[in-house]
Simulated assay, not measured.
Amino acid sequence: MPRPASDKKQRLTSAATTLTLTQGFERTTIAEIARAADVASGSVYYYFKTKEDVGQAIVDALLAETRALVAGWEAAPGPRERLIAYIDSSADAAESLVAYGSAMAVITADLRRHSDELGLAASAVMQELIDWAADQFEQLGFAPEAAAARAMHLVAGFEGGAALSHTLGTSVPIEREAAHLRRWVENTKTQ
């Protein structure tokens, strides 16, 4: 049974994201993206006129995924619980983190090597996550500067644990970092 035409752009974006994670954006060709998405090569240009457009679609997909995750964490009753939900999400993603590292960090770095414009667009997704975490710390009573520093520490801890898990091929680093960050947030005294 053929797939509906309406999902082609999503399949192309998903294929481009996976190929970027596994072999890098520069090495990924339009033909490979089409093949991985099971779409005719010529029709790719209907959705993406340039490779920059492919990169922007990847950024847009990361942003949508990040916002969906944040929306889920926002269901928790308070800022401490929301931060813990973010941390606990690393346990759910441990297998993926071992395989690829943090998709956001890997893709952002790769797109930055391709062009400053795509790198800045991708880093804005990471910044949105940091800003969200800073807002949670502010709700706990921290001044904006202290909240921003805590948010940076939290996200850096998660990203570092993800990078080590990927590099070492084991979930132990992200699991240990997540446990440490969870205790840190649980024991954070409100200001």
Rank of each mutant, 00 (worst) to 15 (best):
T13Q: 05
A37M: 01
L120Q: 09
K49H: 01
G24D: 02
L21I: 03
A149T: 04
S43P: 00
S102D: 02
S102Y: 04
R67G: 09
G141Q: 13
G169F: 02
E145D: 15
G119K: 09
A57L: 07
I174D: 01
Q191W: 09
Y100N: 14
E138S: 14
V185D: 03
S41P: 06
I87H: 12
P77C: 08
E81I: 07
G160R: 02
E74A: 11
T29Q: 07
A16Y: 06
R176W: 04
S43K: 00
K9R: 13
D7H: 06
R112V: 07
T28Q: 05
A149Y: 00
R183A: 00
L21F: 07
A122F: 11
A124N: 13
I30H: 03
G157S: 04
P77F: 05
W184T: 11
R11A: 13
E117V: 11
F158M: 13
D92K: 09
T188F: 14
P4E: 15
R3K: 05
L83F: 13
M126A: 10
A156I: 05
E128M: 13
L83C: 15
L69S: 10
A121E: 14
S102G: 02
D7I: 12
A37N: 05
V44I: 06
E52W: 08
Q136N: 13
A61W: 05
A85T: 14
S90H: 11
T17Q: 15
D53T: 07
D116N: 08
D53V: 09
G119A: 08
D53A: 15
E81K: 06
G55T: 13
V172K: 04
A94Y: 00
G72E: 10
G169H: 01
I30R: 06
M104E: 10
A103M: 08
D7W: 08
A36E: 15
A64G: 11
A16S: 04
Q23C: 10
E177F: 07
D88F: 03
D88E: 09
T188I: 12
S14V: 10
I107K: 04
S90F: 05
F158S: 05
A133R: 06
L21G: 06
E65R: 14
S102P: 03
A148D: 05
A124P: 03
I174H: 01
Q23S: 08
D7M: 10
A94C: 01
L63T: 13
D53M: 11
V106I: 13
K189I: 15
A121Q: 13
A122R: 12
P79T: 10
A146F: 01
E95G: 12
L97F: 07
R183Y: 00
A71Q: 12
T170Q: 04
V70G: 04
M152L: 08
Y47T: 08
A40I: 11
Q139I: 01
I84N: 02
A133N: 06
Q139Y: 00
T170C: 04
I58W: 05
T22P: 11
A57Y: 03
E52R: 15
K51N: 03
T167N: 02
